[in-house]
Nucleic acid binder design. Structure first.
Length: 210
DNA sequence: TGGACGATCCCCT
DNA sequence: GGGGATCGTCCAT
């Protein structure tokens, strides 16, 4: 499969958001590939009161204003990270929030990162599922939210600004999702700018949040 | 320099 | 369905 070219990311943000559905997001992590199929996204545009870029460029949101094809990672609620794909040309502060992916490869590593499972050699705090073997199929809980996805894929402050045409994190063509399988709605957790239907998701997919 | 709040998650009821 | 955890960011004082 082909890595998405820069031109993919330079287009209108809601179009990039919709077209990211079905694409494979690859995270190179400790000599392994973590792979997720993107199934839910939200677009954040200029002049959009819900966007971090609404009041212009700051130290925090500087990456949003880079040319398309970079990763903007921010810290929120004192404990979570969320990841966005930057869009448009340099100087325009727009991006697409990755809200959920369907795990394709590296499930055990994701579960350890999420602290949903441990084995003898993994010294992490025990929480809910500490069975000796991970379940055969990943539970939706693994990656069905923007902060859950970041935790599972080990995406944090160090990944802010990563170039998606590089080798650490990138996006492959993945599979074509027919228009009839795509739905859209108002964005989640947004009050200002609520009326914009800029959340896109794959209908009926088990990893879509809510 | 202070304080209000957030593109969330998890647990409890 | 509701609230607590927890802290960086931004704006107002």
């Amino acid at each position: 499969m082909r890595k998405l070219p820069r031109s993919f990311y330079l287009r209108q943000t809601p179009l990039v958001a919709r077209d990211l559905l079905g694409k494979y997001l690859i995270r190179r992590y400790r000599d392994r590939n973590l792979i997720g199929k993107i199934v839910e996204v939200e677009a954040y545009c200029e002049g959009d009161p819900a966007s971090h870029s609404f009041r212009g460029k700051t130290k925090r949101n500087e990456v949003m204003f880079r040319k398309g094809g970079h990763l903007y990672v921010y810290f929120t609620y004192g404990m979570h990270f969320c990841a966005n794909v930057v869009t448009r040309k340099a100087g325009v502060g727009e991006a697409v929030l990755i809200r959920a992916v369907e795990p394709i490869e590296g499930v055990k590593v994701m579960m350890r990162n999420r602290k949903l499972w441990r084995n003898k050699s993994t010294a992490v705090r025990a929480r809910t599922n500490t069975s000796p073997r991970p379940p055969r199929a990943p539970a939706p809980d693994l990656t069905n939210g923007p902060a859950k996805f970041c935790e599972a894929f080990a995406i944090a402050r160090a990944q802010n600004g990563a170039d998606l045409l590089g080798d650490e994190i990138y996006v492959l063509e993945g599979e074509k999702i027919a228009a009839s399988r795509i739905d859209q709605s108002e964005r989640i957790g947004v009050t200002n700018g609520r009326q914009k239907k800029w959340r896109f998701f794959v209908k009926g997919n088990a990893w879509v949040s809510r």
